[in-house]
Nucleic acid binder design. Structure first.
Length: 639
RNA sequence: GCUGGAGUAGCUCAGUGGUAGAGCACCUCCUUGGUAAGGAGGAGGUCGCGGGUUCAAUCCCCGCCUCCAGCUCCA
């Protein structure tokens, strides 16, 4: 075992080391500073812990606290640390899974007595004690039989059956003092690295997510290499709470939810402004891109849903009712209705692509436990469209849809867009060659719309009736939301017997594309509320300007100015209460009004207004007309 | 749906086996004040809904409803 290994470092240099050299030794060899900063190594893309003897050559780098992968290692180690503390405080507990996640870690426990929120502090304290002990993470490799015996001895009953599901022959354990866990690793050198931790919640979970299986409790937390990052993360969580659309929606009187209609949002006048502005934005694009807008009924007969296939695939999520002894359903999707429109008369190839858009309200009976404000509802409105075209028109159509998506998202302030191409699943319907052609068309459309090299492939995740593109946006807090979707459909036109007459005089079946840009109006407004924290750009803002009188002597003038603004299509209100202007400024700021138009004796005398922005900038005295011009310009630019 | 938690004034929340309180918001009055909180007073609650225990229930028990957090990002 004394053969030489060749490690190719990130700078391109080759380092010769003896087989069995540890990551720590390599780091020390490169420099003492690196040795101190080293968290783990990465050999051929696989992260290995610091005291692991290297046994093969390849590309190699040392991970330090600055690497994202190192953070993952830290958090996985933090999950172990959590388990150590829980086993100390709740002896006899069994362990489930305890992975690192995108922004922290969790561990599932089956404890003899329930873990309550109030225990978290104690558990965290115990964790910090173990941090001080600097327990190492010692790797032990066993074969499967030995592993099962070992798990049995420690009393980790849940993990025993899991051993046989692991593809590798070698099962590894990590020992930290008296604690041990079956784990793939890797880990940080010792627990002293995990100083900056915070436990966030305890909640229910099931062993392997099976709701009929063993109930467990999940403790979630997060960990960082330094105090600053942890603090920033906790502040982000606080920020997110302040921006929660349910809270902002109530504060700004945008919408409400009631026990009388769980999952069915009520839109108030100010929330409806947001809705209408978004619809207007989308309509502008529809007009420019040759779409016709349609409306289809909310309630349609059962037979339609059997024809479309929704009855078979979607029945449990649909609302049914009997009318005149026939069964009807509330539409869960708009496409079948649109297909009836297409089928209502014959079509020529010269009409294709035929584009029909619909702001279509749909109802789906989502499980009660998943409802969440506007983000997960039972009634929502899709900015839907269905395009019927020939197969060779697919790419150009999809290209236009992606262009529209980019344009609409940019207008609402989303520039960071991610896309995924979901391809043929196992239970796919239709001709595999057609699938392949349309997947190529989707990929090509992505490349030609500035997504080249930026979209990711999701093999096998397409719908059974065709491949699709998912569009995700990243909001101001860095969270990603799936909104838009483009789906090719080989199935539904045939189910409805839709056809067009080709140039050859023969009947052909069109391909159908389903697409939504915003996805759900409800959900998109919810996302926008959180993205802006309620501080909307002027064109979207429910109240664009508030006219504030300084004393009650200007009440009439303030009311008139507000009326003038409204006449000039500015959404304005007047505040003529007997409070001091400072108080009114404060209220208007909390209401997130974009402009405060202050009118006192001076302004009333001169027929002017004194304008202040939401951020507190003084634009100074000007005529109402000048303010209107200024505001209209800002609205036009959707700035 | 499942597990755990919660439901008291418009909002944020105290509170008690003997039919309820604060702050903010709201209304009135005083003040007429120039860019993030002037002062005083008043009004406002079937204590989520339905049962039960009790002389008495907002409080204890049971059921229901709604909301909140979570429910396979693998050892």
């Amino acid at each position: 075992m004394s053969s030489q290994l060749e490690l190719r470092l990130p700078d391109g240099s080759i380092r010769q080391v003896a087989s069995g050299t540890t990551v720590r030794q390599v780091a020390a060899d490169i420099g003492p500073g690196l040795a101190k900063a080293a968290v783990a190594g990465e050999l051929e893309g696989t992260v290995v812990e610091i005291d692991r003897p290297l046994e093969s050559s390849g590309s190699f780098r040392i991970l330090t606290a600055r690497d994202g992968d190192a953070l993952h290692v830290l958090r996985h180690s933090a999950a172990h640390l959590l388990a150590m503390a829980v086993l100390d405080l709740f002896p006899g507990s069994d362990l489930g899974f305890g992975p690192a996640t995108e922004d922290g870690f969790y561990y599932d426990f089956k404890t003899p007595t329930p873990i309550l929120e109030e225990h978290l502090e104690k558990i965290e304290k115990r964790m910090k004690e173990i941090v001080k002990e600097g327990r190492s993470y010692a790797r032990v490799a066993l074969d499967k039989e030995q592993a099962k015996v070992r798990l049995g001895e420690i009393g980790y009953e849940l993990k025993i059956p899991h051993v046989d599901e692991i593809p590798e022959d070698e099962i590894t354990f990590y020992d930290s003092g008296s604690f041990t866990d079956m784990c793939e690793g890797p880990h940080v050198p010792d627990t002293s690295w995990i100083e900056h931790i915070k436990l966030l919640s305890v909640s229910g979970a099931y062993w392997r997510g099976d709701a009929s299986g063993i109930p467990m409790q999940r403790i979630r937390g997060t960990a960082f290499f330094n105090k600053k990052d942890l603090k920033a993360h906790l502040e982000r969580i606080e920020q997110a709470k302040l921006r929660d659309h349910r809270r902002v929606g109530r504060e700004m009187d945008l919408f409400s939810l009631h026990a009388e209609g769980p999952g069915f949002p009520f839109w108030h006048p100010k929330g409806t402004v947001l809705w209408n502005e978004l619809e207007g934005l989308v309509r502008e694009e529809l007009r420019a891109r040759g779409y016709g807008e349609v409306r289809t009924p909310a309630v349609l007969s059962d037979e339609l849903w059997r024809t479309s296939g929704h009855y078979d695939h979607f029945r449990d999520d649909m609302y049914f009712m009997d009318i005149d002894e026939r069964q009807f359903a509330v539409k869960p999707m708009n496409c079948p209705g649109c297909c009836l429109i297409y089928g209502s008369r014959p079509h020529s190839y010269k009409e294709l692509p035929l584009r029909m858009a619909e702001f279509g309200g749909v109802h789906r009976n989502e499980m009660s436990g998943v409802l969440h404000g506007l983000l997960r509802v039972r009634a929502f409105t899709q900015d839907d469209a269905h395009v019927y075209c020939a197969e060779d028109q697919l790419e150009a159509e999809i290209s236009d849809m992606l262009d529209m998506t980019r344009k609409v998202y940019a207008a609402v302030g989303f520039d960071d867009i991610k896309t995924r191409l979901a391809t043929r699943p196992e239970d796919a319907m239709g001709d595999p060659a057609a699938w392949e052609r349309s997947e190529k068309a989707l990929a090509s459309a992505l490349d030609k719309n500035g997504f080249e090299g930026l979209w990711t492939l999701a093999p096998g995740e397409g719908a059974f009736y065709g491949p699709k593109i998912e569009v995700h946006v990243t909001d101001a807090l860095g969270r990603s939301w799936q909104c838009g979707t483009v789906q090719v459909d080989f199935s539904m036109p045939a189910r409805f017997g839709l056809e067009y007459t080709g140039s050859d005089g023969m009947k052909h079946t069109p391909v159908m594309i389903h697409r939504a840009i915003l996805g759900s109006m409800e959900r998109f407004v919810g996302i926008l509320i959180e993205h802006y924290g309620g501080k909307f750009p002027l064109w979207l803002a429910p109240v664009q300007a508030k006219v504030l009188s300084i004393t009650e002597k200007q009440a009439d003038y303030a009311t008139k100015v507000a009326a003038d603004l409204v006449a000039a299509r500015i959404r304005a209100e007047a505040d003529v209460r007997g409070d001091k202007v400072g108080s009114k400024i404060r209220d208007a700021t909390l209401e997130r009004v974009n402009y405060m138009v202050v009118v006192g004796g001076r302004e009333a005398e001169a027929g002017q207004v004194d304008v202040r922005s939401r951020a507190g900038d003084r634009l100074g005295a000007m005529s109402s007309e000048d303010f209107v011009a200024h505001a209209r310009e800002e609205i036009r630019n959707r700035a």
